[in-house]
């Protein structure tokens, strides 16, 4: 019998659930492998050498062994712990929102290194400024882009005319922006202000870090949030569960202290 195949990977931990007596079933997104679900044997015992290395929102370098049904994590070493982010409740809830989306958009066995990079860069931006929602908006936009779902922002998706500097309409269903002349029968069609279109185009040209320098008013922030989260939710095909806790914290908006 051939020895089991081993490989190394670098991944961001998205989440886990308990498995059996003391194991963890870990979901992660690996730079070179895409989404992986693997078993951390004994990882729930406080003396396990894996304990503390497999918390969500941690970048880990791992040695893996191909198992019969699922791979086994044999060693793990933390590369980036996002320790400051994890001391801030708002930042954690934003990080978990990113996790849920990467879990939803990432596929097993299909590598997408830009998606891995996007997650890391956005976590760094959230860690740097947890009060700003700009990292989430830029993330949602780039998530569509690296998933091959980039919305059209320069030409009307119906008549292909170049878009005038004007208010337009937008629909995830038809793949982006429409001019005011075109009127397809589409339940997802919504207005798109010129200001919002400009921000989307800026996202298209900028890195996450650059996009986060942009400061916008609350009205525009609300429009972008609604537009991008609707579009991401449309492609995800299900409710984004972590959104409700994020909304709740936002509403409560109390000063935060870490114990």
């Amino acid at each position: 019998m051939a020895p089991p195949k081993t490989y190394r990977c670098e991944a961001i931990i998205l989440g886990y659930s308990p498995l059996g007596e003391a194991d963890l079933l870990v979901t992660m997104y690996a730079r070179e492998q895409g989404k992986i679900r693997a078993v951390g044997k004994g990882a729930r015992r406080s003396t396990s050498k894996l304990v503390g290395h497999l918390e969500p929102l941690t970048v880990v370098r791992m040695s893996m062994v191909n198992g019969r049904s699922m791979d086994i994590i044999s060693q793990a070493e933390v590369v980036e712990s996002f320790a400051a982010l994890k001391e801030d409740l708002t930042a954690i809830s934003k990080g978990l929102y990113l996790s849920e989306l990467v879990d939803g958009f990432g596929s097993e066995d299909i590598a997408n290194p830009p998606l891995f990079q996007l997650m890391i860069q956005t976590l760094r931006a959230v860690q740097a400024d947890s009060a700003s929602d700009m990292p989430l908006r830029a993330f949602e936009f780039h998530l569509l882009q690296v998933s091959g779902l980039m919305p059209e922002l320069y030409h009307c998706v119906e008549c292909r005319q170049e878009l005038e500097p004007n208010a337009h309409r937008f629909s995830p269903n038809v793949g982006g922006t429409l001019c005011l002349e075109c009127n397809p029968d589409d339940a997802h069609l919504r207005p798109l202000s010129l200001r919002a279109l400009k921000v989307l185009r800026l996202f298209d040209r900028s890195s996450i870090a650059e996009a986060c320098k942009l400061s916008i008013d609350d009205g525009l922030a609300d429009e972008l949030k609604s537009l991008l989260s609707t579009t991401v939710g449309y492609w995800l095909g299900k409710e984004i569960r972590s959104n409700s806790f994020l909304e709740r914290l936002h509403k409560e908006s109390l000063p935060e202290v870490y114990i």
Partner: peptide
Amino acid sequence: EATAMYIRRH
């Protein structure tokens, strides 16, 4: 930890 922070906050 997130739950602990939530309790602390509230």
